[in-house]
Design a protein around this nucleic acid. Structure first.
Lengths: 193, 193
DNA sequence: TAGTTTACTTACCAGTTAGTAAGTATCTTT
DNA sequence: AAAGATACTTACTAACTGGTAAGTAAACTA
């Protein structure tokens, strides 16, 4: 079975981008329909409520993250290379597109205003990311690639807080702020060779 | 000369709290006026546009920060105690009030949607904070209270990113996430005695 | 005490928000 | 070829948004 149209995916792509650029509460069905040259009722056809739309955005992104970290090429590289790839895909690339936030940062900032069903999806996705980060950091520490004290889970919290925060603050301080901050974070973590 | 009413200050207090709780774009003149038992036109009397209101919120908070870090008692304590006080006033306390974000984090997340005049105020306030942090970190390093490599300015960027990010992510992960993350950050920075 | 300023209220407005009900063209299945 | 599902459009709504113009009561000033 083939889908005749890809309107639903296009809506999700655009909504996700707008969420990173402006926040979930700062774009409307009218924004989506205007840009896609459809009527706002067409968006409601695919996503009856904004909660449905929000849930779908996060659900898809969460699945994409799982696919990404379970892909074959990921299993063959070191923890340091995996963490570097993570930062490139989920942070560095957003910087190049007009400083989009990561979905975790965007969701966290607007969390109390998000529909309940969406909050649950955000929690699930964030937990997945934090667990992957903790596993990666722990493995890197055992391989003498990373150097840090305390639990890998706590370090994962610091790392995710710092990079999502740095992406946000670089909207104020510019790309140079992001570059300097992430470099400092990386230097603190990585064992010099 | 005494002011007869304090409506203007009450509006600022409430607007600041709402900005930390929900974000600048997520509260309205109607929210403010309803809670203060006045009409929305009364809010417009004191702050004609939302840009005026936003500028006033940040301007006042920036001045409050300057007053705070220039107060007499601050000059008499060590860098470590000053940094600890900063985290208590500007972060720990927000956690206790339903996880309000700091104004820097709230502003950064919504930055592209903020009125231009407000963006300028946010930049000024953030610069003040980063400069103070860099000075404090540098002084603490010279006193053997803190231990870090690289420039104090870069470390200040990591520190501010991490704590503002941790406050946001604790909306997802709860207070325990904040506690664990900030403890890890502190342990990495502070020289053990 | 008359005039002016301050701090509002009353009563609007045009634009935007998420959401809905009913209709239509096109494809798929029987 | 008929019946049903799919993917929309047309046309609408009630609630809310930031913002304004005109009026008013009380306080301050000349």
């Amino acid at each position: 079975m083939t889908t005749r149209t890809d309107t639903k995916e296009k809506i999700l792509d655009l909504a996700e981008a707008l969420m990173q650029e402006k926040g979930f509460g700062e774009f409307s069905y009218a924004h989506l329909s205007a840009e896609l040259n459809i009527k706002n009722a067409a968006v409601h056809y695919h996503f009856p409520s904004k909660e449905d739309l929000g849930k779908a955005i996060i659900e898809r992104a969460g699945q994409r993250f799982l696919d990404w970290c379970q892909q074959e090429s990921m299993q063959q590289v070191t923890a340091k290379e995996r963490l570097s790839a993570f930062m490139d895909v989920y942070y560095r690339q957003n910087l190049e597109r007009g400083i989009r936030l990561c979905l975790v940062g965007s969701s966290a900032a607007a969390f109390p205003a998000l529909p309940p069903g969406m909050q649950q999806e955000v929690l699930a996705m964030t937990s997945q990311i934090l667990e992957w980060l903790a596993r990666t950091l722990e493995e890197g520490r055992e391989n003498w690639e990373f150097n840090f004290n305390g639990s890998a889970r706590a370090m994962a919290g610091v790392f995710l807080s710092a990079i999502s925060g740095a992406l946000q603050l670089s909207r104020i301080g510019g790309e140079s702020f992001y570059a300097a901050t992430v470099q400092q974070l990386w230097n603190q973590l990585v064992v010099k060779t």
